[in-house]
C-alpha cells in the first residue's frame, strides 16, 4: 500500500500553524481558532455523511459544548480548561448516547429532520431561560489551566494553541478511523444497508457509535468557540448554524480528514471580507456557491486536487 504520509503532513501543517500563530495579528489568530472549532464540528459531520446521513442538528452539541463551558465558569465556578473540557465530553456523550438510541433508526430526510428538531428543542429552551440570558446568552468567565491564569492579552494565543493541539489529535484519530474497517463500514452502510446486515453487522450499532463520536467532536468545537469568543448564545443551536456546518462539509467534501478545516477557514475568511465590503451579500455568496458546489463539485473542493493512489477510498 505504500507508506501513509497523511499523519506526517497533518502534524507538520498544524505545527507550522502554531508557529505562524505567534506572529500574526490577533484577529487572524481568532479566525484560525474559530475555523478549527468549526472544523471539528464538521469533521464529526462528515463522519456521518460518509455513512450517508446528513445531520441538520450538529448545532445541538456545538451549543451544548459552549453552554457547558459557560455554566461551569459562571455557575459552578469551574474555569480549569482541562476539567471543563472533560465535563463537555461527558455531557455530549451522555446526551448523544440517549438520543442516538432513537436516531440510529432513522435515515435520509427523517434523520435530517429529527436531528434538527432536537437541536431546535435546545434552542427553544435556551431562548426562554432567563437565568441563562435568554436570546442574548451570557459572558464566559476567563479560563484557567491547572491553576494558571494567563494574562488577558495573551489569552487569544494560548486558546489558539489549545485548539491546534485538540484539532491535531482529532484529525489523527479520525484519519486512522477512516482507514479502518469501521470507517469503511460507514461507506458500506451508505451504499447498501441490507448487505451490511447480511454480513452479520448491525448498521444501527455502527451508526450509533458514529453519532456519539460526531457529537463529542461537535461539543469540542462549541467549547473552543465559547472559550475563544468569551460568549455563548442560543444561536449556536439554531438550525441555521447547523446549516452552515453542512455547508462547510459540502465545500470541503468527505475525501480527506483535513477538508473540514480548510472548508471552515475558507468560509470564515470569505465571511470576514464579505461582511466588510458588502454586508447584504454574504448569504447570497454562501447560497450561490452552495448551488455551484452541488452542481459541479458533488465531492467538494478537495476533489479538484489530483488524486494520489493511496488516498483512494479515503
Amino acid at each position: 500500500m505504500g507508506s501513509d504520509r497523511t499523519p506526517i503532513f497533518l502534524c507538520a501543517a498544524l505545527l507550522l500553524l502554531l508557529v505562524v500563530g505567534l506572529f500574526i495579528p490577533n484577529w487572524l489568530v481568532f479566525l484560525f481558532t474559530i475555523s478549527m472549532a468549526k472544523g471539528l464540528v464538521v469533521l464529526g459531520l462528515i463522519l456521518l455523511m460518509r455513512t450517508g446521513l446528513v445531520s441538520f442538528g450538529q448545532g445541538l452539541y456545538y451549543c451544548l459544548g459552549g453552554y457547558i463551558v459557560g455554566i461551569s465558569g459562571q455557575h459552578w465556578g469551574i474555569t480549569d480548561v482541562a476539567l471543563v473540557f472533560l465535563l463537555v465530553v461527558l455531557a455530549a456523550t451522555l446526551l448523544s448516547s440517549i438520543l442516538g438510541l432513537l436516531l440510529c433508526r432513522y435515515r435520509e430526510i427523517f434523520f435530517a429532520m429529527l436531528t434538527m428538531a432536537f437541536s431546535m428543542i435546545l434552542y427553544g429552551i435556551l431562548v426562554k431561560s432567563e437565568k441563562l440570558g435568554s436570546t442574548d446568552g451570557f459572558i464566559i468567565a476567563q479560563a484557567t489551566l491547572f491553576g494558571w491564569q494567563p494574562e488577558v492579552e495573551a489569552s487569544g494565543t494560548w486558546i489558539f494553541a489549545l485548539a491546534v493541539i485538540i484539532t491535531l489529535v482529532a484529525l489523527l484519530v479520525m484519519h486512522l478511523y477512516f482507514r479502518s474497517p469501521m470507517g469503511f463500514g460507514g461507506e458500506a452502510i451508505r451504499e447498501n444497508e441490507i448487505r451490511v446486515e447480511y454480513l452479520g453487522v448491525s448498521p444501527r450499532r455502527l451508526i450509533y457509535i458514529k453519532y456519539v463520536v460526531a457529537a463529542v467532536l461537535a461539543a469540542f468545537g462549541g467549547a473552543i468557540t465559547a472559550v475563544a469568543a468569551g460568549h455563548v448564545d442560543p444561536e449556536m443551536a439554531f438550525w441555521a448554524t447547523s446549516g452552515e456546518f453542512v455547508f462547510i462539509a459540502l465545500l470541503g467534501g468527505t475525501l480527506h480528514v483535513a477538508a473540514p478545516l480548510v472548508g471552515a477557514f475558507l468560509i470564515e475568511i470569505i465571511r470576514t471580507i464579505a461582511l466588510d465590503l458588502a454586508p447584504y451579500t454574504w448569504q447570497m455568496i454562501l447560497g450561490g456557491s452552495l448551488l455551484l458546489i452541488i452542481f459541479f463539485l458533488p465531492k467538494g473542493l478537495w476533489s479538484l486536487l489530483p488524486k494520489r493512489r493511496e488516498e483512494e477510498g479515503l
Binding site: V54, F56, A112, L250, W282, Q283, M284, G287, L291, I294
Partner: peptide, 13 residues
C-alpha cells in the same frame, strides 16, 4: 434540501 437551502440563503439577501 441542500439545494433549496442555497436558494433560501440567496433570497434572504
Amino acid at each position: 434540501i441542500l439545494v433549496t437551502y442555497g436558494v433560501l440563503l440567496i433570497l434572504e439577501d
